[in-house]
């Protein structure tokens, strides 16, 4: 049962990632792209968790933790750049 659910989840998140990619390329605005990037981060995070469950291991969870935290910092920086140009002032 869990196997089926996991496979389904894997599939859905892969499709989500590809759709993110589409948005990322199409834009049209920089804001859309930043948003797409942030969503790619989130979806990758989800994939990592799924992978850990699939392999019955917890070694991948720290990486997921880092994505959660650092993806945020990257997005903030890009947004701040759009807002002010200079991100550290």
């Amino acid at each position: 049962m869990l196997t089926t659910v996991l496979q389904f989840a894997f599939f859905m998140f892969s499709v989500a990632l590809l759709l993110n990619l589409l948005r990322f390329f199409r834009g049209p605005d920089l804001l859309d792209r930043i948003l797409a990037l942030d969503t790619i981060y989130i979806n990758s995070l989800a994939l990592l968790i799924l992978l850990g469950m699939w392999h019955h291991t917890s070694f991948y969870f720290e990486a997921a933790l880092l994505i959660a935290m650092l993806g945020f910092i990257g997005t903030v920086a890009a947004a701040k750049f759009l807002l002010r140009g200079d991100i550290i002032e």
Partner: peptide, 25 residues
Amino acid sequence: RLTSLLMLSVVGLMVSLVFIQFSAP
């Protein structure tokens, strides 16, 4: 430039997923 940079960011993220996939946390 910013778009190009965001693309690079995706590349970097995906590379780290590659490392995860092949047993290198």
